[in-house]
Design a protein around this nucleic acid. Structure first.
Lengths: 191, 191
DNA sequence: TTATGGTGCAAGTAACCACTTGCAAGGATG
DNA sequence: CATCCTTGCAAGTGGTTACTTGCACCATAA
């Protein structure tokens, strides 16, 4: 799909966007990091924006969540842990940084739908799952919308914090966080 | 502190940063929106960066959470609802958009500490509160770090989604979300 | 060998950036 | 009235941006 030179350019571009954002990343920066002459960039891609479009077509830079990836058994804790694992395996701090770095007026139309689709998909999965669990009388609430949004926020918030502050806000690692947040989510915290 | 012209410039700058981010906001944009000549900006402020510094000194553009703002009674649900209300009254979608728009390499040193202090403060409040509740045997868990991070993420995630997608991801409004997310957080969802 | 395609290099484009300057108009203050 | 002070206006600064072009080099393949 892309040759060696193109891949060097793609990788250089995305790693710079993670660090500085799209607008602040110049084609000179990209050329330097890709160890390529600047004019080569424009021989390989129509323009700066085209590099982003090309990169977004690769799964490496575009975490596409699919509903089929989320499987469940009927055990609330087990299922929600598994959901979180799938979500957090795709929505990594790196991906969050990219989606933040891509926030630019002239990329908005290009990226908006793709970015929104990720929480949309996860929420859809959660709503469907909670409805099913409710039918099986495994839930003590009928406010499924809130449940889904809260669980989604709990997961996204964690990865956002990791992306923004590394381990400075909390040293909890993904696996421990999933286990305990899901356990608390299901069992509650009060006695 | 600032005269009329300076305030017009400050408001124009921050509203543009909400929309386009710092790097993509030009002084020409600012002048136009502030209905001021571009050179007036540089008569009133040393440079573009100084405008941000000035704005950040105003509470209107810089949500400073204080630990004293968080009061509690000992009733888990009531207290956590009140915590969320305080947090979400300061950390609005507008504020989130600003902190995202301020992510720029040449502003990093300037903004990083201020931005990180908000989740830091809220987490500190939560940890202290949960420890107290644990001493009173009102918690069924001793994993306070996870609890605090999860509750923080649940709140931040919500306002981030509102900032990014408006009502498109969920039509839940802040008040309803607080009530039900806190209730579920305390009581759990499984039966 | 010859031809071809990819690349580096140097130079240059027009547009845009933050920022500056000199001057004149106007409003408030003495 | 005389004096500031603020602002608009027009023009311009040097630097940077995305993007271009012409030429030489070189490895590969016919």
């Amino acid at each position: 799909m892309f040759d060696g030179t193109q891949n060097k350019i793609l990788n250089a571009t995305m790693s710079l966007i993670i660090e500085k954002g799209y607008t602040a990343t110049t084609t000179k920066d990209i050329a330097k990091r890709a160890e390529v002459n600047e004019c080569t960039i424009f021989r390989k891609f129509k323009g700066k924006k085209e590099i982003i479009i090309a990169a977004m077509s690769l799964p490496e830079w575009n975490p596409c969540l699919r509903e089929e990836d989320f499987k469940y058994t009927g055990d609330l804790i087990k299922d929600l842990c598994s959901f979180s694992e799938v979500y957090l395996r795709k929505v990594t701090p790196k991906m969050v940084k990219i989606s933040l770095g891509l926030r630019s007026p002239d990329l908005y139309d290009l990226t908006k739908d793709g970015i929104k689709e990720i929480p949309d998909t996860f929420k859809r999965v959660l709503v469907r799952y909670f409805k099913k669990m409710q039918e099986l009388h495994k839930l003590q609430t009928d406010d499924i919308e809130s449940l889904a949004v809260a669980f989604l926020a709990m997961n996204f918030g964690f990865v956002f914090f990791k992306a923004s502050f590394g381990d400075e806000l909390t040293e909890l690692q993904t696996k421990e966080y999933i286990d305990s947040s899901v356990r608390h989510f299901v069992n509650g915290i009060g006695r």
